[in-house]
Design a protein around this nucleic acid. Structure first.
Lengths: 214, 214
DNA sequence: GTCTATACCAAGATAGAC
DNA sequence: GTCTATCTTGGTATAGAC
């Protein structure tokens, strides 16, 4: 009977209306980011975004004349900045980088479970599947990864690791977090993330540090 | 002018016709697996699969009455088995598990570069974005991850690691490989994969082994 | 088992009134 | 800046001849 298979879209929780009401553009970007995070680029329609953001179709193309692609780039940049904030806050709360990254994995695991395993990395789902054909989106995703790597790098340098070691480790920390989040999402279990935290800590602790670490 | 933004679909290389001509069903599954690996579930159409597989639309629904979902499950299982073979071959070629995993990352990096960074993990793109709404697909992806973990686990046990250590490491090895492949794809660089290989080797080498390792 | 035609719906995007 | 109506194309899926 149904011509297109229906997919349940939980969407159980409104993100709690903020004190200052958001502008239309901001509402659109946030909604796009959240929906593409869950459903990917192709799985998310402009009409769905406009409906859930409380904006009309005219507003969508008023603010994003480049259409869906431009919207996706804005969504990825939003997710990028959002995670930079989380990353900064969690890393700052623990002096030791290993402990900080372990705390980060716990935080990610909690968030994933709280969303019933649907809110994964805010850029992966959007970028995957479009990487080959839509260079703007791919580039925005690459920038996000670079920003996150830089945050980890700064933490490792601050702890007294050699620059080369820190730079290389930052790559693997982000890669492992990405993969563990993915695995946790697919298997609906916190285990991959928590083990990633333990192992990353152990790996980092094998590298020498200078004495004057703050 | 165009109502739907066109996406370039390179598809430069036919996978070289095998000696034994494939049956229709096999051709459909392989084509579906390859296309969904590149474009994701929502980005891949039944008509596109049928065209590229040289099958008619009638054949598609003859072999897969469950439609696109059933086809996606078959595609994921195909990618699963395909990677189990690669994993088994590469891991068997090196006695030391660390060296074997490093060889694996080199192999993955080569394949990714050879495909101009479009052929990533054969199940990730298909599963992502559908995990929440399509349980069959999510379950097939979870099974694939479990199979790959078991292959790594066997290699670590064989090398003399304690079972608990090996079991936990197998999780992180797969997570890190997944994430590094993703990062390599997005940044169009082999670096994340190669660094992942180095770091995973270093991590594995921090664990004790029994003397009677083969 | 294979093929063609088609029903039915949703997608992205645009036009133009207000 | 907002809203509605609409155009066109593509999607999934089905029917039924061969």
């Amino acid at each position: 009977m149904q011509t297109k298979t229906q997919r349940s879209r939980p969407d159980q929780s409104e993100p709690a209306a903020p004190a200052t009401p958001l502008g239309t553009r901001e509402r659109i970007v946030r909604t796009a980011s959240r929906l593409m995070q869950r459903q990917g680029y192709d799985g998310t329609g402009i009409k769905q975004i406009s409906t859930e953001a409380g904006a009309t179709l005219g507003s969508m193309y008023h603010f994003f004349p480049g259409g869906k692609q431009e919207l996706a780039v804005a969504a990825i940049r939003h997710g990028d900045a959002e995670f930079v904030d989380i990353l900064g806050a969690v890393l700052a709360a623990e002096p030791d980088p290993g402990a900080a990254i372990r705390a980060l994995t716990r935080s990610l695991a909690e968030g994933l479970r709280a969303s019933d395993w649907i809110d994964g990395c805010p850029v992966t789902a959007t970028a995957l599947g479009t990487a080959a054909g839509l260079p703007d989106i791919q580039a925005a995703a690459a920038e996000a990864f670079a920003h996150w790597r830089e945050a980890v790098l700064a933490k490792l340098i601050e702890a007294g690791l050699a620059e080369t070691d820190a730079r290389e480790l930052a790559h693997t920390v982000i890669s492992t977090l990405e993969g563990a989040e993915l695995a946790a999402q697919v298997t609906r279990s916190e285990e991959p993330l928590l083990l990633a935290g333990t192992h990353l800590t152990r790996l980092i602790d094998t590298y020498p540090r200078t004495a004057d670490a703050g």
